[in-house]
Simulated assay, not measured.
Amino acid sequence: MTYQPLLGRRPVRAGPSLALLPDKDELNLHCGRLHEACGPARRNFALWLAARCTGPVLWVRPLWEVDRLNADGVADWVDPARIIFVDARRPEDVLWCLEEALRAGAVPLVIGDLPGLPGLTQVRRLHLAAETGGTQGAYVPLGLILTPGMGGAQGVESRWHLAPDHAGGAEQWQLARLRARTAPEARWTLQRRGTEGNRSLHAA
């Protein structure tokens, strides 16, 4: 798979990606870029990506946000000890932390829980920071912003919407790719299967 950097006139080049599911190439997200997740289960989407990478994960969130992740719920998907939470005092501090973390390339996944949509200039800065981190840091970082409602940040590499659809005792979600630079809109039903302590995510 290939991608075109948002800024500059460099040729299209192959790059690493992070697979949401091991057997679904169409659910790969390009590293060194900024992606967006929205919908009521957007934090699940972030946890699934965290489970698919190795190393620490940086999660930046507003200090005033009362809707916090519970460690017991996080442990269902990923070791909570891998997640470093950063509480930002102001909305602009969330974006600043994201930019600095992506530029450092010190972690494979940087998540920003945003109270609103960033501007196009801010998104471009985050793309550039992720590209820089990929050339200077230990990882080619993937940036993920979590936005309220249906999202809609301009200039992101891809936008995903995730909503719960549990029925009949099954853990199930509806995932939609709302936009992507290199792929069409698409939808999947994802289910969690297996026994206690050995459950995994699959496309139905």
Rank of each mutant, 00 (worst) to 15 (best):
Q136V: 13
A204H: 04
G134V: 00
H166Y: 12
P115W: 06
G15T: 10
S200L: 07
G152W: 02
S158C: 15
Q191S: 11
L117T: 10
E65A: 15
A46V: 03
A101V: 05
R52A: 15
T121A: 15
D72T: 06
A153C: 13
L142W: 01
A204S: 12
L175Y: 03
E99A: 11
A167Q: 14
P80V: 02
R193I: 15
G8Y: 05
T147A: 08
D23K: 03
G8M: 07
D23H: 12
A183F: 04
I111M: 08
P91N: 05
A138C: 08
A138F: 02
C53Q: 09
C38Q: 05
R10W: 11
V110N: 07
A51K: 00
D93N: 10
Y3W: 15
R187H: 14
H35R: 03
A106F: 02
H161I: 04
C38M: 06
E36L: 03
V140T: 15
C38A: 14
R68V: 08
R10D: 05
L201W: 14
V74K: 02
G8C: 05
H161Q: 14
L21R: 13
L95D: 04
T147R: 08
G39V: 03
M150K: 06
E171Q: 14
D93S: 15
F45R: 05
P5G: 03
R181E: 13
G39R: 01
